[in-house]
Design a protein around this nucleic acid. Sequence first.
DNA 1: GTATCATATGAGCAGTTGCTCAGATGGAGG
DNA 2: CCTCCATCTGAGCAACTGCTCATATGATAC
Lengths: 128, 128
Amino acid sequence: MSVTETLSAIDPEAVAETQAAAPSEELLRLVVEAFQALADPTRARILYALVRRPMRVRDLAILAGVSESAVSHQLRFLRDRRLVRSERQGNAVIYTLDDHHVAALFREAEHHADHVRLGLPDHPYRIP
Amino acid sequence: MSVTETLSAIDPEAVAETQAAAPSEELLRLVVEAFQALADPTRARILYALVRRPMRVRDLAILAGVSESAVSHQLRFLRDRRLVRSERQGNAVIYTLDDHHVAALFREAEHHADHVRLGLPDHPYRIP
DNA sequence: GTATCATATGAGCAGTTGCTCAGATGGAGG
DNA sequence: CCTCCATCTGAGCAACTGCTCATATGATAC
């Protein structure tokens, strides 16, 4: 057996094959950005609320349990990534979900959470 | 109109109603952790690869385009959160997806990416 | 016009994250 | 035994994130 064969003995085609099926850099960037938007407790609370109904900043701040300024910053983040949309209504600004896939993403993540909970007993990972 | 009514004129029930439907803190934590796991380019590349087939650390490092040490760190992260599972095979360690919901999450995120791309032209958000 | 309410924004800072580097661990083969 | 290969791990650090605080903007009511 040659040195080259020995060095990559286990899965010589794995890399090439998987590389071909990999998503484009552009798509990967967008996908990762979508997950980043959902990967924060405050933003998740905001989006969970907006899945139920459109709401103004004030109320979102109460629900998310942070200052109105903090919510406003996060809403800009979400707006820039097209997860929410804003609309003036007199003095207030009403925010709406701008993509129904958000609800689907939450559903899938909850399924994963169930998976984690069911298998938890023997697993080393504990709440930080 | 009283002061109290004026202060919460737009949606007095929004908070209470949405608060009742909100997910528990425990579930929210797990959901956010799941999204955090997917919210990094290296981890996303690793998981995209593992959706295709089980693979050893070496190959994942090549596919993710980072050092084997870096991949190992990220694999521990993913292992702790039950997204992947590891199995020794002689000298190497083979990693496998530990939850088929990962593929579904990627699919949904890709749908969102399409949504973003379709609506991109008039939108202020640009690649950082 | 001024005052007030609601939201937005920029600067600054503490906490977190993902990498590198050096060294440890563990199986296979001589 | 010793050596090589593959993987793991801890420390340290540069970059990023999410908040607060102060201030700006914008619409309504007077």
